[in-house]
Structure formats: C-alpha cells, structure tokens
Amino acid sequence: MTKSKRDRIKVEPFLAFGNTHEVFFKGRVITAYQQKRPSSRNGWLKNVLATIKRYAGSSVPNMTVEIIFQDKTYVVQTDQDGVFELQVGDSPAQSAQNEIVTFQVVHPEIKNSPVAHLEVLRYSGATGVISDIDDTVIISHSTDLGRKFWLSVSKNALTRRPLPGVSSFYRKLTENGKLPMFYVSSSDWSLFDLIKDFLRFRHIPDGPLLLKDKHINLKNVWKSGGGDHQHKYQKIVHLFKLYPEMAFYLIGDSGQEDPEIYADMVQKYPNRVKGVFIRLVGKFDPARRKQLEEKISTENFHFVETSEQAIAILEQEMKEN
C-alpha cells in the first residue's frame, strides 16, 4: 500500500449502542471519499455517478483500530471486508451526559490519522421493534433483479420512495419514537448513510442499522441486498441476547425469507415476540404458509397488504391488552 493511499484511509463508524451495562461497536476502515449531500432535484445521471463514487471507495482489511470509550482503550482488527466490531461489558453509563466513543486507525501508521466520533445510544424497556428495510420500509422491488438494480443506482436518499403509510405505522408501533427501533437488512454497509438520510427525510423512526458485512464494490454492486439472508437471523439473535428483558415486534415482507426467519425466532424465543407483521409482496405461496403453520402458531403472524391494515390490527391488539 503506497503512502499516498494510506494517507486517505479513515474509520467509518456505524454502530455504538447497547443496554445499561454493555455496549456494541461496529465500523469499517475505508479509503476516504467525498460524497455531496443528496438533493431531490438530482437526475438519474447524477445519482448513478454518486453510486459509482460510493462503491469506488475500498474497504481496507487487516488494519488495527483503536477504540477509546470511558477512558478505556480497546484494539481490534478489520476483517477481509474492512469491517470490525467489538462488544464490551461492565460499562454502565457514567453520567447523564452524552457518551462518546472514538475510533482511529493506529497500524499501519498513518500520518495525521483522522479520529472518528460517535454518540453511544443505550436502550432499555419492555418492548422494541425490529424491522427489515427493502420492500418493508423502502420500495426496492427485491424480487425483480433488473428493476431493483436500476432503482438502487438511479435514485438517492431523497428520491427513493417509502411504502405508503409506513411512517405512520412505525410511529404508532414505537409510540412516537419512545420505543427502541432496530433495522436489520441484507443491504450492504455502503448504503448506511443513504438509509439514514432516507429515514430522516421520510420522518420514519431512526435506530441502529445492522447491515450485511460482505463488501460490495463496482464489480458486484448488483448483488447488494441479495444472497444468503441468514445473517439477518444472527443479528436478530444478537439483539434478543443484548436486550433479554425486551419483547419485540418483528416487521418484514414476503419477498425474501423474513417469514421463515421470524418463525425461527418465535420458535426459539416463544415469549419474546409480541407480534409479526409481514407485508405481502405479490401472492404468498400457500405451501410456504402451510410450512409456517406446521412449525409455529401463526396467531400473531399478520400478513398485510397495506400499512392501514397493519395499523388497524395493532390498534385492536392495544385495545384488547
């Protein structure tokens, strides 16, 4: 690696969240790139060029990252995709002030290595929400590879469209943002800032994004959001373990494997799932429904076509409880 290229390396932090005594950190090391803020006036050509720029940046493997939190120093290595993560225990909040964690590449040595900062978010309580993103929150056409690819490269955070009514449904689910919201998706980390901007622009409750670790570049950008989705199951299990006192609503769609993954969670944690909402993408195969019914009780498994249907079901459940 040449000195000039090393001088452009930086940490891109993604996650710093936890419970009352544990905190989970995640990020990656990349060659720095400058991305202009999205605009709703950008045409498809500008958006395609922005996508090329987004994926032209390289994740950097085998880098040593120093993490400083609560006056303690931790050292981690990036994996083959430039990603690192760390979970630390015995770290209760020390004051009512905002907690900040810092990240910096320390090896190989980089001149004036930039320091990245992230606020640590802690969640507690009895109820949380875990949601998929593609075709659950944002229109993605995940079952049509060509349409999905063109949509992903020709639109930006301000021109991508949400599923109708999803903002109202999620505000109802989270009691206007009082309950913690977590997103688990097969989108890759290069889309992290786009998804964050999209959620804010569309007034959809924000929360930690747990995306797919496998690096996507210009050669395989068309694979983003595809492939094996078992990583979603693993990330949901991680959330269940990080918040053992919390029961969750699970929100997804029928276009990929969400119903089967959520059924596995109901089976593994029968008393920890308050309800499942599956947005129907096309017709739901009767054979899939039968397999679910043979595996678990689908009493709290709600298949909906619109956000209005989901809101009506949620309001009825609230009345009954």
Rank of each mutant, 00 (worst) to 15 (best):
F301C: 00
R200W: 05
K196A: 14
F240E: 08
N42R: 10
K219P: 01
E12Y: 13
I261R: 05
T306Y: 05
S297L: 02
G125M: 01
P286F: 02
S40W: 12
I216R: 13
S187P: 04
G177E: 11
M63W: 06
F192C: 04
S185Y: 00
F192T: 11
R41L: 09
F14D: 13
S185A: 03
V120E: 02
L121F: 09
P92S: 00
I52T: 07
K196S: 14
T2I: 01
T306I: 01
I311S: 03
S297P: 03
D285N: 14
T51N: 03
T306L: 01
K155I: 00
K196E: 15
V276C: 08
D188S: 15
R122E: 07
S297Q: 07
T20P: 03
K5F: 10
G165N: 11
A32G: 14
F84D: 08
R289K: 11
P162M: 05
N271Y: 04
T174W: 10
I313S: 02
S95Q: 06
F169K: 08
G125V: 01
F301T: 01
F303C: 05
I251N: 04
G227F: 09
L218K: 05
V304H: 04
K196V: 12
T306M: 01
A56E: 10
L211A: 07
W189A: 10
K10L: 13
N217M: 03
Q104W: 08
I251R: 04
V76K: 13
A126Q: 15
G18M: 00
F169P: 04
N42L: 04
D7Y: 07
S187A: 15
G18T: 02
F14E: 15
R8Y: 12
S40Q: 09
K290C: 01
D228L: 02
E305T: 13
E85T: 09
H229C: 05
D213R: 12
